[in-house]
Write a protein that binds this DNA or RNA. Structure first.
Lengths: 330, 330
DNA sequence: CCGCCTCCTGCAATCGATTTCAGCACTGTA
DNA sequence: TACAGTGCTGAAATCGATTGCAGGAGGCGG
């Protein structure tokens, strides 16, 4: 691996000059040409580790997400990757599995590696970010807010819940349940709150809280909750699933029970990934996952480049794709 | 950020001793205790950048994959991440989008960052890995082979193709088509070859090559190919899709055309991600994506730790989940 | 023609940890 | 008592690039 010293020797200049050529600091055209020729000859690439050590700043950003196997976060990652790559940054993928311990470990690594910044979708909303903040490493919260006053890119989760539930009401369903994620995750609670505000208006025979199930944001969680809901008496005639995977789980159970939409109303917050049978009868509240990633990455890079404005919160819009069929007439 | 010098000063020892404590080199119990106390007090974490520079080896591995949004690669990534994390390595996610240019750029970065190793699912089978090899950076090829003699973790793609096609034959279908990926990707060609070897035996009215479509390994590719196949005369009565996304695309088109399995036979190589309607009538050749990731990561870490055995190739088994229903009687 | 200013350039220090080498203390043996 | 051997320890060099500082060349106005 050629170093800056070898290039300098080959070009007959000092290492400092070589460095300057590669960093856009003014150098006479003549020497610059010599350096470039020597560098090309020796296939020189600057050692990023040495650069990071000196600059105290690696061209790397950490993307900390709770579940890499969830297509929602995958799309988000894709967005981050696109922007980061274009700006010359690498992305370190940190999958926390919703485990605050793993998350903390990754945040420590971000510090130890002098990473330029962190994009964080928090596991439990209680992460200690003081270490990063003390070292003034920029952080952008994405999807979920944090305890700290930080840039964030989020959704109007309550509105998404309202949209999902009211679409079902409009379609004629009357006993609308809700399956949401762990109560300690803000997005789960906010989306459920949106649902609650709608069903509270429409009279339901059951106390509406019986129709609300907290579970995990996974397929299994959706399945378990859906089964429990179907066992109620009276059973609901529709359900809001507050994320994509729970929606999949709910639809699986409904399909097994022979109650596919529109016989049973379903609204899902988040895109159903790779659906093979286009489910026109399911309402989808589409979330701009990839946009969230690109937006967050752009904000982070601005911060890295020295932006010191007060923390901003960007709320991205969702889009409702209503089911084409309503509830069957009773 | 506390450095080793500050810890040394606080503990009344030399920086060398502090380093030794953190690297398992023998140090008297007494001084070790002093160092640990001082380190804890100062919340010291060794700076990984400095360490990498000195050791010429970062605790980071690059995972280079063509499509982060494909759940197959996501599972693989998950496997890699699990093993790497447990071994103290971070994973840098490199999404190449099947673009050899982006791939080359990422491989250069792996060199410039002194990354410990690379796990590579190649875009086009022509990557130039000589730079990494010259610097003796270990590489493990995964899913797809490379031009170089390297450790690899692959599938028996031909056998997977055979399994998919013969399951359809056994189920009673007679005009079996195949949708596969770009011809220059080995896995696409090998799986198609497996299909070809089966249909060559069973007489088909059409020349079998008409029933073979090369497309992109994406949902759209599957859709386009499936539409083209349905327009043939005679149209096939079954299809093998050689990856998960093409399978999704094919099923979407079939569903739109009202020809869902078992009316039309479908076998997919790779798991259908998050299916909402359990498609008992579709044959799935399950691929052990996550195992591939863990296996590759383990092999890579052995190499990083100095293993110098000749290159190994591990072939992981697939599993056939046959459709429960056969072809409708003619 | 002189002095000041600008623009390059090179020297050398620096980032923070690792590691070689030499020195020291101590033990056990002859 | 002397000596070889063992085991810690610290001083200092090192990894490769960046950058503050000072010096030299050349341009320009007075």
């Amino acid at each position: 691996m050629a170093t800056i010293y070898e290039v300098a020797a080959a070009a007959g200049v000092s290492p400092a000059t070589v460095s300057r050529v590669f960093n856009g600091v003014p150098v006479s055209a003549e020497k610059a040409a010599l350096v470039r020729a020597a560098a090309a000859e020796l296939r020189f690439t600057p050692n990023r580790t040495a650069r990071s050590l000196r600059r105290k700043n690696a061209e790397v950003i950490a993307l900390v997400i709770p579940d890499i196997e969830n297509p929602y976060f995958t799309s988000l990652a894709r967005g981050v990757e696109d922007v980061a790559q274009a700006a010359g940054y690498s992305v370190v993928l940190c999958n926390t599995d919703e485990d605050p311990g793993k998350e903390a470990k990754y945040l420590d690594i971000a510090i130890a590696e002098n990473m330029a910044g962190v994009i964080l979708a928090e596991a439990d909303g209680r992460a200690d970010l003081s270490g990063l903040i003390a070292r003034s490493r920029p952080i952008v919260a994405v999807d979920r807010r944090t305890l700290f006053e930080l840039d964030s890119v989020v959704l109007d989760n309550r509105a998404a819940g309202v949209a999902a539930a009211s679409t079902l009401v409009d379609a004629g369903y009357r006993r609308i349940a809700c399956i949401t994620g762990p109560a300690e995750i803000d997005t789960a609670e906010e989306r459920a709150e949106g649902w609650r505000s709608i069903v509270a208006r429409s009279a339901t025979p059951h106390g509406s809280e019986d129709y609300l199930r907290y579970s995990s944001f996974r397929v299994d969680g959706g399945r378990d909750a859906m089964r429990a809901l179907l066992a109620l008496d009276p059973a609901p005639d529709a359900v809001v699933a507050t994320n994509n995977l729970m929606g999949v789980g709910a639809l699986q159970v409904l399909s097994e029970a022979g109650r596919v939409p529109p016989a049973f109303g379903v609204a899902v917050i988040g895109d159903l990934p790779f659906t093979t049978l286009t489910p026109d009868a399911t309402t989808i509240v589409r979330l701009p996952a990839r946009d969230m990633g690109t937006t967050a990455a752009r904000m982070l890079i601005e911060r890295i480049n020295g932006d010191t404005e007060p923390a901003r919160t960007v709320v991205l819009p969702h889009e409702v794709v209503a089911a084409t069929a309503g509830a069957p007439a009773v």
